[in-house]
Design a protein around this nucleic acid. Structure first.
Length: 586
RNA sequence: GCGCCCGUAGCUCAGCUGGAUAGAGUACCGCCCUCCGAAGGCGGGGGUCACAGGUUCGAAUCCUGUCGGGCGCGCCA
């Protein structure tokens, strides 16, 4: 509908250009908006006010010329000039009636479009280190990323969903060492667990499966392991030096083969856990991309070489630095450490280089907001490599703070006192979790009210929306009990019987849905869909309370059933985009 | 100290990329079930859009500054 009106305006503009009223070479993006107030019609454009300077005429005069040049349309019943020079469009009843028919005809595909034109976009999200289970912070990134991806797919992009697996690096070595220490403990060795190690119960489980497989074959005495290892923090030492030395000793004692096995056992079991968590949350991926593969394929080396060749690297204090300050970063960054090891950043340069090499036209990263300082250096690297950094959008997701009984739920990764995503799903259910996570703008800090998410009452927006959907299904069941019929074709013929203000309002809302989806997708704002669905549900409930649907008058009944079935369809489509179920009864 | 994000009803948040009289939910008060699910609906009170300037036909929205909150400033990942 909106596109149709834009076309009309565009034709009017062309007409005025050829008449010489407006400069022919003028390029304008026409703005057309839904009116806030129905008294101003359905759509309004500020075109005349925007162009009045170029046309050297008063806004209202120009508006009149534009309106005069507007081609006729059976979708438009009236065009008015109002206020300082707004052009207000009133849609014809027929436009709304055909809208209802369209929804029922298109079904699940209503709201989808092809404005993305099949352009490829990669969405990388969550990508939490496989060193432990996902927690509620990751959950928001998962729900948000998955919904953004689904929205983009709905408007015609070819979407590739990807999880970057940090299967290399020091944190993973710490995990492997933690697993080995738990294994030794199970063998009967008495040892003090490092303060920097991973202390979660899941590490015990992995240590146990290592023990099941090898028995005591990999056992070394604690004394042997701690030989030459500097003191841990509680003993007045440095926890970083302590753990690094333990990693080193574990490697030596286990030998490369068994160390690798321990490492991979930890990686695989945690990754499996993460996969299951996300699958259970309705979050699916096309690819799990291994960081290690970047080193093995030589991509990291190649990225560094390219930066080297183009003169963006220099050596200082034994390390190799990338001059990211040339492209707006605050300081230069190390890519190869003094000890010869590449940094995490080096992998990330290679990873993003790889993404663009794979030919994606757009690349989206969803990160926790605490990584925001990282954006300039990644973009700097892409620019230095000669790529277009504008292809990359980094979407930052703020943390969610849980509330239970009006109190903040304490959380810190350090103390191991965090709520896992699995616990959250178990407590409030998938639907509420998915919905609450995307209910807020991503850059907004979020208060996640667990009690509200759990409550099965109208206070809870997710129940409110699902209830609207179930209510329509219930009406249809009731209809059969009463021995009545729904004849969709007859309903279509009689849509002009829908003359109540509630019906009018409902039809307006239904016609907005494709615009909502389009804007939500392009702006990466799933919350717009959540708010829309709440409003739509409200209109259905209001209508329900004001009028009887199952009336004896066949024509009226069929028309009304068409309308509420169309509403049910849009509710279902919207909920599906958010990863939330649309039940027929509750 | 520097950088990024955020300040809108008592509380939680929208506000369609600068438009017409700033909106929902919640909480509080009052109404509506011999009627398709009251898990619902209707009505009411509640605001200096943090503050001060600026840009223009027009600002909650854009720019500058101040105040307040969050996060980030490693040869960690």
């Amino acid at each position: 509908m909106k596109h149709h009106l834009l076309q009309l305006l565009s034709q009017a503009l062309d007409a005025l250009k050829s008449e010489g009223v407006l400069p022919a070479d003028m390029a304008t993006e026409i703005q057309l908006e839904r009116t806030r107030d129905r008294k101003h019609g359905d759509f309004a454009s500020n075109l005349a006010m925007v162009l009045c300077k170029q046309a050297r005429s008063k806004p209202r005069d120009l508006a009149e010329k534009l309106v005069a040049a507007l081609p006729g349309s059976d979708q438009v019943s009236k065009v008015e000039i109002a206020g300082p020079g707004f052009i207000n469009f009133y849609l014809s009843p027929g436009a709304y009636h055909s809208g209802v028919a369209q929804i029922l005809a298109q079904g699940e595909s209503y709201g989808r479009s092809d404005i993305g034109q099949g352009k490829t976009v990669q969405v990388e999200f969550v990508s939490a280190n496989p060193t432990g289970p996902l927690h509620v912070g990751h959950g928001r990134g998962a729900a948000y990323g998955a919904t953004v991806a689904d929205l983009l797919a709905a408007v015609g992009y070819k979407v590739h969903r990807e999880y970057y697996v940090n299967d290399a690096g020091r944190q993973m070595d710490i995990l492997a060492t933690s697993v080995y220490l738990r294994y030794l403990d199970l063998c009967g060795e008495e040892l003090v667990f490092p303060s920097n190690g991973y202390k979660g119960d899941y590490v015990w489980d992995i240590g146990a499966s290592l023990h099941r497989k090898h028995g005591d074959a990999l056992r070394h005495s604690a004394a042997e392991l701690f030989d030459g290892v500097p003191a841990d923090e509680p003993d007045g030492g440095d926890k970083e030096l302590h753990i690094d030395a333990l990693i080193q000793r574990s490697r030596e004692l286990l030998g490369e083969e068994h160390y690798r096995e321990t490492f991979d056992l930890g990686l695989d079991s945690i990754l499996e856990n993460i996969r299951n968590d996300l699958e259970g949350f309705g979050v699916h991926y096309d690819e799990w991309f291994s960081e290690r593969s970047l080193t093995e394929s030589g991509a990291v080396e190649r990225a560094i070489q390219r930066l080297q060749d183009s003169g963006h690297l220099y050596r200082e204090k034994g390390a190799l630095w990338f001059r990211s300050t040339d492209y707006g970063d605050e300081k230069d960054r190390v890519v190869v450490r003094e000890n010869g090891q590449t940094t995490y950043f080096a992998s990330d340069i290679a990873y993003h280089m790889n993404k663009l090499e794979r030919g994606y036209e757009r690349v989206i990263d969803v990160w926790g907001a605490d990584h925001h300082g990282y954006v300039p250096r990644v973009k700097a690297a892409l620019t230095a490599l000669g790529d277009n950094a504008d292809k990359l959008d980094v979407l930052l997701v703020q943390f969610a703070i849980l509330y239970r009984g009006g109190e903040k739920v304490p959380m810190s990764t350090r103390s191991g006192e965090f709520v896992t995503l699995r616990e959250l799903r178990h407590e409030v259910g998938n639907d509420a979790a998915r919905f609450f996570y995307v209910m807020r703008k991503c850059e907004q800090h979020m208060d996640f009210d667990l009690d509200l998410a759990k409550s099965q009452s109208s206070d809870n927006p997710i129940y409110y929306i699902q209830y609207a959907h179930a209510r329509v299904a219930s009406v249809m069941r009731q209809m059969q009990d009463k021995g009545m019929q729904w004849d969709r074709a007859a309903g279509e013929q009689n849509l002009d019987r829908l003359s109540e203000s509630h019906e009018d309002a409902l039809m307006v809302s239904l016609s907005r849905y494709p615009e909502i989806v389009e804007a939500a997708a392009l702006n990466h704002e799933p919350h717009a869909v959540a708010h829309y669905l709440r409003d739509l549900a409200n209109e259905l409930h209001t209508y329900y309370n004001a009028h009887q649907f199952l009336v004896d008058d066949d024509a009226l009944r069929n028309a009304r059933l068409n309308l509420i079935q169309a509403t049910r369809q849009v509710l279902a489509n919207g909920l599906q985009l958010l990863g939330v179920s649309a039940p027929d009864s509750m």
